[in-house]
Simulated scan of single mutants.
Amino acid sequence: MIAGNNNYPSSVSGVGTEYLEIRQLSVENGEMFTEADIQASAKVCVIGKTIVDNLFPDGKDPVGKVIRFNQIPFRVVGVLKAKGYNSMGMDQDAVVLAPYTTVMKRLLAVTYLQGI
């Protein structure tokens, strides 16, 4: 992920709008992308607190800003509420969520779901 002069190694997960409820996540700032964004394969994303801290270290609000993943620009529409580390020691805030159709078509160049 790249924003300005800052970068951070991450992957993008393609998800639906129900993902937040399933994973018990909530958007702290901004909003979740919509069903219309999924239908349009919009280049939008919701990011976790670790991504915010590393790409926007000056404390600027990332909502509305553009970050790049593999040269593809994504507009940040929301920031997730911090969850911290899980029992396995994995950072649950180092996430980038985008519409699954966007990840399929624009990042992976496939027409099928690879996992559910």
Rank of each mutant, 00 (worst) to 15 (best):
I2P: 10
A3W: 02
G4M: 09
N5R: 12
N6R: 10
N6Q: 12
N7M: 11
N7S: 11
N7Y: 14
Y8C: 08
P9Y: 06
S10V: 05
S10R: 04
S10Y: 04
S11C: 08
S11N: 14
V12Y: 01
V12F: 04
S13E: 11
S13R: 10
G14D: 06
V15L: 00
T17H: 03
E18K: 04
L20R: 01
I22E: 13
I22D: 11
R23H: 13
R23F: 10
Q24A: 14
Q24F: 08
Q24R: 15
L25T: 06
S26H: 07
V27F: 02
E28R: 07
E28Q: 15
G30Q: 03
M32C: 10
E35D: 15
A36K: 11
A36W: 04
I38R: 03
I38F: 03
V44S: 04
V44F: 03
I47W: 02
I47N: 05
T50K: 11
V52C: 11
V52S: 05
N54T: 11
L55Q: 13
P57K: 06
P57I: 00
D58A: 15
D58F: 03
D58H: 05
G59Q: 14
G59A: 14
D61M: 00
D61Y: 00
P62E: 07
V63C: 12
K65S: 13
K65I: 05
N70W: 02
Q71W: 08
Q71N: 14
P73I: 07
F74E: 07
V76C: 03
V77T: 13
G78L: 05
K81S: 13
G84K: 02
S87T: 06
S87R: 12
M88W: 05
D91C: 06
D91F: 02
D91V: 00
D91E: 02
Q92H: 09
Q92R: 07
D93C: 11
D93E: 12
D93W: 01
A94W: 02
V95C: 08
V95N: 12
V96W: 01
V96D: 04
V96S: 02
V96P: 04
Y100V: 10
Y100N: 10
T102G: 09
K105L: 08
L107D: 02
L107Q: 06
L107R: 06
L108V: 12
L108N: 12
A109N: 15
V110H: 01
T111K: 11
T111C: 13
Q114W: 05
G115M: 10
I116K: 12
